[in-house]
């Protein structure tokens, strides 16, 4: 079990959520312009608190989960990236979200590479998977930038069929 690892990249610090991070979730869901799925905005305080609690419990139950991303220089919360098992689903997924003003700067790519490298090195995984709706073009592009290839197509517990990408470990960790 790797309790509360901190990952550091050139520009970012990634840490698992703590009880003190509820305001980060509140800020993100307040700003979110996403209309579908886990990152959609327009949620009540209770819903946001439940999502925060879910992400903390995930670390306890699985030894991995969502990391919150902060800019190292500004110490500003800008989003999240991590590996989660959605309840009732058959597989894990790399997932990420960014505050609207943090997009377009390569933050999701930098954070995702750090999470993948950590999973390969510290969890001993051979690869990480990710999946997204067909219309989520940005997520498909990111998966491809991460060296991912489509491994299969699956219908998930919400009835939506998605491509599943396998994201390789960094060469050095292989």
């Amino acid at each position: 079990m790797t309790d509360h690892p901190t990952l550091t990249t050139e520009r970012l610090t990634l840490t698992p959520p703590t009880p003190a991070d509820l305001p980060c979730y509140a800020a993100f869901y307040e700003e979110s312009d996403v209309t579908v799925g886990g990152y959609r905005g327009g949620r009540s305080d209770a819903e946001v608190a439940a999502i925060h609690a879910r992400d903390m419990a995930h670390w306890r139950d699985h030894g991995h989960g969502m990391f919150l991303i902060r800019l190292r220089e500004a110490d500003r919360f800008v989003g999240g990236a991590g590996i989660i098992y959605p309840e009732g689903w058959s597989c894990h997924e790399l997932t990420w979200f960014l505050r609207p003003d943090a997009r377009g700067a390569g933050v999701a790519t930098e954070a995702s590479l750090a999470v993948i490298a950590w999973a390969c090195r510290d969890l001993g995984w051979a690869a990480v998977e990710t999946l997204m709706r067909d219309e989520n073009v940005a997520a498909h592009r990111l998966a491809q930038r991460l060296g991912g290839r489509v491994d299969r197509r699956e219908t998930f517990p919400d009835g939506v069929a998605r491509d599943v990408y396998v994201l390789p470990c960094p060469e050095a960790a292989a």
Binding site: G37, G38, R40, A46, E47, I51, A53, R54, E87, D158
Partner: peptide
């Protein structure tokens, strides 16, 4: 238990 789905629905 309380379940929060992937889509964040409680």
């Amino acid at each position: 238990r309380r379940s929060v789905s992937r889509d964040g629905e409680t």
